[in-house]
Design a protein around this nucleic acid. Structure first.
Length: 457
RNA sequence: GGCGCCAUGGCCAAGUGGUAAGGCAGAGCUCUGCAAAAGCUCCACCGCCGGUUCGAAUCCGACUGGCGCCUCCA
């Protein structure tokens, strides 16, 4: 039984047994800038969740949104002399391309706020009608004090929030804590018609409307980064449950810890970001996944070059085993690896709130089993197949790490060929000079009965 | 100030009552013409103090150190 820790109740929750169609909503991004390595965390975590659910027999309806209209986009577009749409399209496409490189499964739907205005307006209108929201000067605000349970997700008390000095009281709001569902248009901003005049949606409402529209009034899992717990998800619960009159809005709330860089979290506002594509270029998808999955998703991971490098070497180790080929015939007895036992260990780890760290330990031990079986001339293919199967659940590609440059390839191959001939002639000293020279240039050679292979290090 | 989290070997990281998974790095050995890869072996008593218990990294309390949210943020 899969148990996932729910942020709201702070207790493990379970899903109905399969066959069951899991309704999963994962908060996406506001596409106003390029992605950094921190964005890869929820992507990988929820991709693994999805792959694991499917592995266990569930079907998953997965929705991830793009909030393609908001203050940052408007500011950035103005600043760059472009349109909000052009900017949002550019970074949305870039984000999706990065997801693909990360080997993340595509969501069932990627709704965009600007294409869901009708649904958003409908939800806002419903909230106004029920007295949970009010129009004021062309804006519409959600009345936070209307429902007593506001703050339940983030464990906040309304009056404690009030004492926080950083809340900016707006004269248009009845209460300083009320938040905007709809913002009346200002000159030069994109706007859409509404019963309250032209304007655009506020930040939180689009997710409620999209979850409602694409998944229904009550969903199974709602996920995102821990930084979204307040105010975003708190407000989403409030709106959604007020609108539908049904609770819980989500059966399970899952939040991944934020990636840190040195002492601080990695964040655009702090400015300490490392581009996602750059890391993918230099280390490859499996290394990024191993880096992220090396710790449980609720524990914060700290980005360091050393940790990424360690993950890269580890990925290479798994790849070597997953791609292992026989030495000699490899036709001996089947390796004594109990596939059911290994699967059981892997599954037990994953069932326990996605303990990917422990699941990876199972994979590494399995990799050792594959290698040992091969070294001993046993039939290691079933074990190798199992490694590929379980690695696939974690979204590993087992692909060769990226090569920095292809230009040198013909020259390297010429040298490798030359060395092969020298070795055939037992010209060891000369052969070694070639290999040592290549090693210094970052080319590692590997001799085997089938010939010499090489790779960049 | 409010809410919450964390502290395990050189680095990363599992483990929440019965005596420390795994990865990276390091040492030795095997294999290899030499290497690489791989295999084998070795490498921790769990921030500090006190308490509960037959027994604690694991429960309780205090302390120290670090972090997150409360404001846009994955």
């Amino acid at each position: 039984m899969i148990r996932l820790l729910d942020t709201l109740t702070n207790e493990p929750q379970e899903l109905p047994p399969p066959p069951y169609d899991v309704k999963l909503y994962v908060c996406g991004i506001t596409p106003y800038a390029g992605s950094h390595i921190g964005h890869a965390v929820p992507v990988v975590v929820f991709d693994v969740l999805r792959r694991y659910l499917e592995y266990r027999g569930y079907t998953v309806r997965h929705v991830t949104n793009f909030t393609d209209i908001d203050d940052k986009l408007i500011d950035r577009a103005l600043q760059q002399g472009t349109t909000v749409k052009a900017l949002a399209d550019q970074f949305s496409a870039q984000y999706l391309a990065s997801l693909k490189r990360l080997n993340a499964l595509e969501a069932t739907v990627y709704p965009r706020a600007t294409e869901e205005i009708g649904g958003i307006v409908m939800v806002i209108a419903g909230l106004v009608e029920k007295g949970f929201a009010y129009e004021s000067g062309g804006d519409v605000y959600y009345r936070v004090r209307q429902k007593a349970d506001y703050g339940k997700l983030s464990k906040r008390n309304i009056d404690d929030l009030l004492s926080g000095a950083r809340i900016d009281p707006t004269e248009l709001k009845d209460d300083p804590l009320d938040f905007a569902l709809w913002k009346g248009t200002k000159p030069g901003e994109p706007s859409w018609p509404s019963p309250w005049g032209p304007g655009r949606p506020g930040w939180h409402i689009e997710c409620s409307a999209m979850a409602l529209g694409h998944l229904g009034e009550q969903i199974d899992i709602h996920g995102g980064g821990a930084d979204l717990i307040f105010p975003h998800h708190e407000n989403e619960i409030a709106q959604s449950e007020a609108f539908t009159g049904k609770a819980p809005f989500a059966r399970i709330w899952m939040h991944n810890a934020l990636l840190r860089l040195g002492a601080e979290k990695m964040s655009k506002s702090v400015g300490n970001i490392i581009g996602l594509d750059e890391v993918l270029d230099s280390h490859g998808a499996d290394a990024v996944r191993l880096f992220i999955l090396g710790s449980q998703y609720r524990s914060p991971v700290t980005y360091t070059e050393e940790a990424l490098e360690a993950a890269k070497v580890g990925a290479e180790r798994l790849r070597e085993a997953a791609m292992a080929t026989a030495r000699g015939t490899g036709g001996g007895a089947v390796a004594p690896i109990d596939a059911e036992q290994v699967r059981a260990e892997f599954t037990a780890a994953m069932d326990d709130d996605l303990n990917t760290s422990k699941a990876l330990a199972v994979l590494f031990e399995l990799a050792r089993g594959v290698n040992r079986a091969r070294d001993e001339g046993q039939n290691f293919r079933p074990a190798r197949a199992l490694l590929r199967e379980l690695g696939g659940v974690l979204g590993l590609t087992f692909a060769a790490p990226p090569a920095a440059s292809q230009e040198a390839t013909p020259f390297v191959e010429l040298l490798v060929q030359l060395r092969t001939e020298l070795r055939a002639a037992k010209q060891w000293a000369l052969a070694d000079r070639v290999r040592d020279g290549l090693t210094e240039l970052g080319i590692e050679l590997k001799d085997s009965p089938e010939g010499t292979t090489w790779r960049r290090t």
